[in-house]
Amino acid sequence: MVYIREAHALDSRAPMGIGDGMPIVEDPVTFQERSGVAQVCMTKLALEPMPALIDDMDDTANLAYGAAPDRLYLIGTDGNVAFKGGPGPGGFDPGELEQAILAELDRRNEAD
């Protein structure tokens, strides 16, 4: 997982966390704050078995991949983008990623 800028921080232009049962999170302004929220996220959503990286406060990875608010990619063994999911939330489709992974593994096995 690549943990990026909050999609719906309390003090954002599209806030959540007011009467809707969503987590109450102010938009982190330091790397330590973002990392702290990410740790809670990984624990609360039971994602801890998954390796997680924190995007820097310049949102480098987020911008490079057009990732906000959420998005799925697969990078092939050749280092190229093998699959690029649609922008979330509507385009966030784990089933598509699964198919892309299977296709990439088939391709790699055929190449070996």
């Binding site: 997982m1 909050e6 999609a7 719906h8 996220c41 799925l72």
Partner: peptide, 11 residues
């Protein structure tokens, strides 16, 4: 190996 990137946040 291939790498799956899952971009997201808690909110």
């Amino acid at each position: 190996r291939p790498v799956a990137l899952i971009f997201g946040s808690y909110t």
